[in-house]
């Protein structure tokens, strides 16, 4: 077995984990499986790409790669803007669609179907605006550096793993130590009681979209940087995202991240052992196994 699968898995798992965190947050606080989450990743990547292009046009310095990475300062700057726009997209969708259904007391299944429809619309819109042709943040070639033990990674890939670790640690602190985090955990346990405790539930819901869509944008940019940007990139990630969320236990942030890493690693090893055409089946098999053997997942509360 090639130890390189470990690095490949960690890298893919970082993207899946960051995406799964937003999904699990939305599930535990808004109480529905949000199919548009994958499209937030894709929109985040395209919005960032657009801003990156604009910044590069403004100043060549922002576009020029900064050694040892394949991209310049323009990309992190564009990603901040892209994240802000992705958050606006999510908040807008909540205002015109999900929020209205919630206020009307719609069944969960109706909200899930609405998100499914919105997901298709968002994806088609991307394809309409940007065409289905894959695009890239950069065409600079990067040489993978040896890490020892027969493993290699490019500086971009190591940055992705590092950034993921920082974001997950920050989010963990926010949720466990801050008033905002307490309020989010409270709403996820019992929204009615949260109101009775004086929590502004609408504000917590906005916060959930902000964090979820922001992280989705980052995950989308990572996937775009390491692979490519396509309108279907989010859709193709949906199954791994849901598998990671359910494997980790719905509502658990550490669970979603760990679930993402496990899915990423399982995919990478499956590609090595049985072949690349089986990559997509891995998430599905894990999803089915978890649902049958341990439906509450690794960290989930029973009945949550």
């Amino acid at each position: 077995m090639n130890p390189q699968a470990l690095i490949d898995g960690l890298i893919a798992g970082s993207t899946i984990g960051l995406g799964a965190i937003g999904l699990t947050l939305a599930y535990s606080i808004l109480r529905f499986a949000n199919f548009t989450h994958g499209d937030f990743l894709a929109w985040g990547a395209y919005l960032t790409l657009t801003l990156f292009g604009l910044l590069g046009g403004l100043s060549a310095g922002l576009g020029a790669p900064v050694h040892p990475f394949s991209f310049g300062w323009g990309l992190p700057l564009a990603m901040l803007g892209g994240a802000a726009l992705t958050v606006l997209l999510a908040l807008g969708l909540d205002r015109i669609l999900f929020g209205r259904l919630r206020a009307r007391g719609a069944d969960v299944i109706i909200i899930v179907m609405a998100s499914f429809g919105a997901s298709m619309a968002l994806r088609s819109l991307l394809e309409f605006i940007f065409t289905a042709k894959p695009v890239y943040f950069t065409n600079a070639l990067q040489i993978a550096q040896p890490l020892g033990l027969g493993m290699r990674a490019t500086p971009d890939q190591l940055l992705v793993i590092g950034l993921t670790a920082v974001l997950v640690a920050g989010l963990h602190l926010l949720l466990t130590r801050s008033a905002t985090g307490r309020a989010m955990r409270a709403v996820s346990e019992n929204p009615d009681l949260a109101g009775v405790y004086g929590i502004n539930v609408a504000q917590v819901i906005r916060m959930t979209w902000i964090i979820g869509a922001g992280l989705a944008c980052v995950a989308g940019v990572m996937a775009g940087l390491l692979v490519q940007i396509r309108p279907y990139m989010g859709f193709d990630l949906l199954l791994p995202l849901f598998a990671a969320t359910i494997l980790g236990g719905i509502g658990s942030i550490p669970g979603a991240m760990l679930g993402g890493l496990i899915i990423g690693l399982a995919e990478a090893f499956a590609v090595q052992i049985i072949g690349a055409e089986w990559r997509a089946a891995v998430s599905f098999i894990i999803l089915v196994l978890v649902l049958m053997l341990r439906p509450q997942g690794l960290f989930g509360q029973r009945g949550a």
Partner: peptide, 28 residues
């Protein structure tokens, strides 16, 4: 909405499910 009522000076204790069981006593 409930949270504005609390701010207006109303305290309400429901019969059941009236604490956050997954939070600590102090966090409540």
């Amino acid at each position: 909405t409930p949270h504005l009522l609390v701010r207006s000076g109303l305290g309400f204790v429901p019969q059941t499910d009236n604490i956050f069981t997954r939070l600590t006593i102090r966090e409540n």
